[in-house]
């Protein structure tokens, strides 16, 4: 008992939160993987995974076990350090943003007063992973993927920031908790529809999802930056991608869709998490549907779209917001 009392309660809270979040990460990846395959199946008029467990519900777990059990192949002539570091680099930074996201009024590991900035920063670290992985693989296809990832994220981080800034201007804070609290009466999606749309589109690009999945574009680059990865390395990228999607969707929920707000529930300060997850997974469902509907855009078109449409629109939006708020 003595040892525990030495530790500050804050630290214990953080440790517990990290453990919960990491286990949630894996759960999320499994759920998302399953949902993606099931939805893809039904979109294409086929049942999707059906064999392992009832309606294939255990399929992803079995796949995960298979991937973990595989040998981690390191091809000849790769940069061994970078090659091994890349999957970890894609996995680690995606844990941190979850620490500052307010799942409900009282369920938040830590309320940073610069929470939003923190999330955006961590989002950019993820690109490093793709670059390192692509560079370290010593494969031309991986290299293409890495280069595309970098250019793409530079182009898309700007509209993301600008659209988020519009919300920040309206509630004068970077703290996610306060932003949600400010949406007590009306969600920002109704006040800032343009910013919301821009954020969702740019978010698709940020998470490398179809139609912006250029870094892995399999019909062009076989598998892009993770061409050479197998086993655990691949699955870390995979988990990282899904968590990234989750983060993008939660930021959209927090900033635009009113976070934990919803019809009243008992123990609202905790059970608000139900509404939060409902909104997040609705957004994720939309992202999955988009992936299985559209072709992939070309690289220069993607950049054109970012610079010609998203950036001007978000700038104008920001300007109008600023003028209206300060009047």
């Amino acid at each position: 008992m003595e040892t525990i009392s030495i530790l500050p309660p804050e630290l214990i809270r953080m440790v517990i939160a990290v453990i919960i979040i990491i286990s949630f990460l894996f759960l999320n990846a499994i759920m998302m993987g399953y949902a993606e395959r099931k939805i893809a199946g039904h979109v294409q008029r086929r049942p999707g995974p059906m064999e392992v467990g009832s309606h294939g519900i255990l399929q992803m777990i079995v796949d995960g076990v298979k991937l973990v059990g595989k040998e981690l192949l390191i091809p000849f002539n790769v940069d061994r350090t970078l090659f091994r570091v890349a999957p970890l680099l894609s996995f680690t930074p995606v844990i941190l943003p979850l620490l500052v996201i307010p799942f409900s009024e009282k369920l938040q590991a830590r309320d940073l007063n610069l929470g939003l900035i923190f999330i955006v920063t961590m989002g950019s670290v993820n690109v490093m992973a793709l670059l390192v992985g692509g560079w370290g693989s010593n494969n031309k296809y991986s290299m293409f993927g890495a280069m595309r990832a970098v250019a793409q994220s530079i182009a898309y981080e700007i509209p993301i920031l600008l659209s988020l800034l519009a919300v920040v201007l309206m509630c004068n804070t970077f703290s996610l908790k306060e932003i949600v609290a400010a949406q007590q009466n009306i969600w920002f999606v109704f006040l800032q529809p343009v910013a919301f749309l821009i954020y969702v589109v740019a978010g698709l690009a940020e998470t490398n999802r179809n139609p912006f999945d250029l870094p892995e574009a399999e019909s062009e680059l076989t598998a892009g930056f993770h061409t050479e990865y197998s086993g655990m390395g691949f699955s870390l990228f995979f988990i990282g991608e899904y968590t990234n999607m989750f983060i993008v969707a939660s930021v959209a929920t927090v900033l635009f869709l009113g976070g934990w707000h919803g019809p009243h529930l008992p123990y609202g300060e905790y059970l608000g998490v139900v509404w939060f997850f409902l909104k997040v997974y609705l957004l994720l469902f939309l992202m999955i549907m988009v992936r299985w509907t559209y072709p992939r855009v070309r690289f220069d078109q993607l950049l054109n779209f970012a610079w010609k449409y998203l950036v001007p629109f978000s700038l104008v939006n920001l300007l109008i917001t600023a003028v209206l708020v300060k009047l």
Binding site: Q44, N210, D213, A217, E218, S219, R291, T293, Y294, P295
Partner: peptide, 8 residues
């Protein structure tokens, strides 16, 4: 369409 990245 598969070449262009649409799976459905």
């Amino acid at each position: 369409l598969l070449d262009l990245g649409a799976f459905t």
